[in-house]
Design a protein around this nucleic acid. Structure first.
Lengths: 334, 334
DNA sequence: CTGAAAGCGCTAACAT
DNA sequence: ATGTTAGCGCTTTCAG
């Protein structure tokens, strides 16, 4: 069916070990025969079988990626970075989408193991201790472990939260509300921690009543905003823990004739492409998503290559950036 | 390193063909030993090696997908459909992103062949005759071939174009302009054909001067609109061949104080998630992208399973739908 | 420099 | 019902 190394060998009357050597650019073949082999392979349309190769080399040049949602542009951009980096290193990506379902995620994980991927990049939908003693190279996007036993790449969530609230305060907003994303408890908590710190740095304190949990979607944000504002307590700024939530808040404000940014300021998180649209222009915290994806892959590859020789684990932290747009007041100290 | 079938066999003192039989649920093993084997495998943490399996079965349970751009939500939704369908059938997806680069696309294609994928789904960035005599199961998204030698799934572009222009005319717009996407010449042409037909059905004719080519992006749409309007000829409606272009037109109109939909009507194509945002509400032609992805995979799988026994090729055509929002006038015959 | 042979982990005849 | 064996396509000793 498919042309194999043996077919080429037979055609040329050489042993197939020579073919292998020639094809892989190893020494031990004369210039002449190497040339002959390469030509014949080309002419016959020979395509090496990576399955067989992988079986003997124990390297599949393949990594698995599991994300919760591909239509969330946040993950889309991370994946774009991963794919580009993998391409540069002649790797291919198995993309799996868990739909925030831990059981499906687990299933995917096992399938990837069976496929003998060289490593896995995972954004877990659940608590990620499940993966604490996996032996294959593994990068968990935002793995929260007590000990730093694993390599990691992350964007500083605490700093992001700090920047967001600091900006809100700079704008003169005083009654801050916070909408967490229940899908990612840890990230939301970290951001909230930064928020708290920004408040405290000015001698203020975070009002715990004003922290509610929503879901990472536009509708989730809208609902949460509704809930928040209908309590009747004073609110003049909302920090949504992702842009989708922020956009939902915007939507609620629009429906309820609350003027943004005058009456209420809104800030999101992530800086997904939507947020920058001229009709939206949501102030937000930019996360370097594409770069994160690239570094995730590169760090994983590093791990793969140094599987045995124990190297010190590393922790790479990327910085988020404040992106001021039009949903927060511009004047300072009004 | 990894536990193999042999390890389990040794542990239990059975031959390893029995293990294989038990694990694959084939007959020829007594209930008792089957149970024993399954337990031992579980206990020892045995994970079958799909590379080896694929080598002997000549089936990798893997398909490759090549798309031009993952951050275009249009492709994102198609991929979501493909991934869901593949999961339901216990397949995994190699996702490749060509960046509209035909050379990279070709490279990816070859890599997938080496990885021995069972089939490939491809949205080609170039003219797709390159793939006319590929022997592996292949689904090209919008393959334009003179003969229907291949299975295909597509959304009716001509109908989509017709619906769009028909609606514009219903709204009372008279001076129509068209912005094509140069990345996808064929699709744009088909849609234009439908547009022409809608005009002719009312005894009107399409003004070829009013057809220009842009690029499938917001900025591309903005530029094209600029070019169009600066010619000074009367234009009261623009049909952008995708939503990104439509949004670019919206942006231009906003910057130039052209009121939409009163002065100028704008219609896009695809109905990507952006288009439905409350701040945008772009009238557009909906393409069932997720369903397209699902059917693409399912049709491919069908092809894979019936590789040899020649079945008649099939052509599945999905219908697009007009989605009226706020960028076109509502009143008919004003 | 080249060939023969073993083996990667698994399945599928073919025996027993 | 179970075991033995060959072989999938390739890489890699080990001889020559």
């Amino acid at each position: 069916m498919n042309i194999t190394i043996k077919d080429v060998a037979r055609e040329l009357g050489v042993s197939y070990s020579s073919i292998s050597r020639a094809l892989n650019g190893k020494e031990g073949v004369s210039k002449a025969t190497r040339k002959k082999i390469l030509e014949a392979a080309e002419r016959m349309g020979y395509q090496p079988n990576d399955l067989a190769r992988g079986l003997v080399n124990r390297i599949s040049k393949t990594v698995g990626v599991i994300i919760p949602d591909i239509n969330n542009p946040f993950f889309g951009e991370i994946v774009a970075g991963i794919i580009d980096a993998s391409n540069e290193n002649e790797y291919n990506i198995f993309l799996c989408v868990s739909g925030w379902n831990p059981a499906l995620e687990k299933e995917y994980f096992n399938t990837l193991l069976k496929k003998r991927v060289d490593g896995i990049i995972l954004k877990s939908a659940g608590k990620n201790e499940d993966y604490d003693n996996v032996k294959s190279p593994l990068m968990i996007i935002e793995r929260y472990s007590k000990y730093h036993e694993f390599d990691s790449v992350e964007v500083d969530n605490e700093l992001g939260g700090y920047l967001a609230v600091n900006h809100l305060l700079d704008c003169g907003y005083e009654h801050l509300a916070f909408i967490l994303g229940k899908e990612d408890f840890f990230a939301s908590q970290r951001r909230l921690k930064g928020a708290r710190k920004a408040l405290e740095d000015r001698g203020m304190t975070l009002n715990e009543d004003m922290v509610i949990e929503g879901s990472f979607s536009i509708e989730g944000g809208r609902q949460a905003a509704k809930q928040l504002f209908e309590r009747g307590k004073p609110i003049d700024a909302v920090f949504g823990m992702n842009d989708l939530i922020g956009m939902g808040v915007l939507q609620y404000c629009n429906e309820s004739d609350i003027s943004v940014p005058d009456q209420v300021g809104v800030i999101g998180y992530d800086n997904i492409s939507y947020a920058g649209l001229p009709q939206i222009r949501l102030t937000t915290i930019h996360q370097p998503k594409y770069e994160l994806g690239k570094m995730l892959f590169e760090t994983l590859l590093d791990e793969i290559k140094n599987k045995d020789n124990a190297k010190p684990t590393k922790k790479i932290i990327l910085n988020p950036e404040l992106k001021i747009r039009k949903t927060t007041r511009s004047g300072m100290h009004p």
